[in-house]
Amino acid sequence: MNAGGTSAASGADAALPRIVVGYTANESGADALALATRLATASEAQLDVVMVLPSEARSSTVPTDVGYERHLKARSREWLTEASAKLDAEVAQSLHVRYAESFAEGLIAAAHEFGSSLIVVGAARGGILGRSRIGSVASELLHSSDVPVALAPSGSRELAASVGVSRITAALGSRPGAGVLLDVAVRLTKSLRAPLRLLSLVPIDLPSGMDEGLAELTSTAHADEVLAAAKAALPPGVVTTAVVATGDTIEAAVRSLDWHEGEIVLVASSRLATPSHLFLGSTASKMLRELPVPMIVVPRSTGKAAS
């Protein structure tokens, strides 16, 4: 690493798509690194492993002693080197230390700097194994980032990188943002070369008290429509299926579905999000509590994706 706090490992290729992974030297950081590695391997992307340290502006909480700053930077380099040693030698990677007012702010700035298509972070510590618990960093990212954010569930580090991405499930409703999400899902499917499952959330989006027959007809029509649109946009031979959510609640619908090892879920930002930014809505929040697989949240009105 140079004085600016950046080090590029050999093999890094600026022509590759890039994924930023927010790294911390704990289990959450290991989970984020594991998920990012799987995504990078499947899409042949470069990993930018980023540690964010408090900026000098936070002098009220960070000692200004030069010796302390030198020690903190040196320790961060050691942690990054240890993380790098765990990565597959074939994964292009760069290691970076950045300073920012917050961890989330540093990751967003890094994603802009590198032109990254995705930010990956781990769940907060203390969550249920296989589930995602949103901590302060993930919460800030999921309510402000203009780059898609992937949240690695607790225990993701236990899944071998060779598993790759076994399937992509895109959760589509009838509200604004569904079209953007479908476009992103198609591009991600091409990039990761994985089967695509379209999950229609229309039954749960429909007004309560709606005639059951009409609700079923509306749901089936929506599933058929998005399936046809996806098949038209994907290369021949890509396996594409559509399912309709069942259950009285989002949580029940998630529990009723089968989930593959190595699967990822795409959801759109809330309609309350400002254009081109994330805002984790109530539907996605409810899904997140039940999902046993990683979730990627896509900004509203944007075409960016991990591709």
Rank of each mutant, 00 (worst) to 15 (best):
G122H: 06
P292E: 02
E263W: 01
S132R: 05
E82W: 00
Y23F: 15
S28V: 02
R187I: 03
E78D: 14
P235R: 07
P275V: 10
A83G: 00
S28L: 07
V244E: 12
L33Y: 03
D48F: 05
S76C: 10
E251K: 11
I250V: 15
E158I: 09
P294Q: 02
T218D: 14
E82S: 13
L159G: 01
E101H: 13
D48C: 14
A89L: 11
E105S: 13
A253C: 08
A152D: 02
Q46W: 04
L201T: 11
V239E: 15
R271M: 14
A89H: 11
V137H: 00
L227M: 13
R193M: 12
S84Q: 13
A12E: 08
P153S: 07
V121S: 01
R70A: 15
L198A: 01
A171N: 11
I19M: 00
G173C: 00
A221M: 08
L280N: 01
S301L: 10
L33S: 02
L199E: 13
S285Y: 09
K286E: 15
A284M: 10
V163C: 02
N26G: 14
S59I: 11
E78C: 04
V186M: 05
P203I: 00
R38G: 01
A268W: 00
P17V: 12
E158L: 12
A221F: 08
Q93W: 04
A110T: 12
D211I: 10
V244H: 00
V163M: 03
V165N: 02
L214W: 12
L16S: 12
R38Y: 03
L181N: 12
A83V: 10
T302Y: 00
A109H: 07
Y23E: 04
S60H: 12
G303K: 10
L159S: 08
V267I: 13
I204S: 07
L142Q: 02
S7Y: 09
I168P: 05
S7Q: 13
A161M: 10
L206Y: 03
A30H: 09
L142M: 10
K286I: 01
D258Y: 02
D211S: 11
S191D: 08
L35D: 08
V165L: 08
V52N: 01
N26W: 05
L159I: 15
A124M: 10
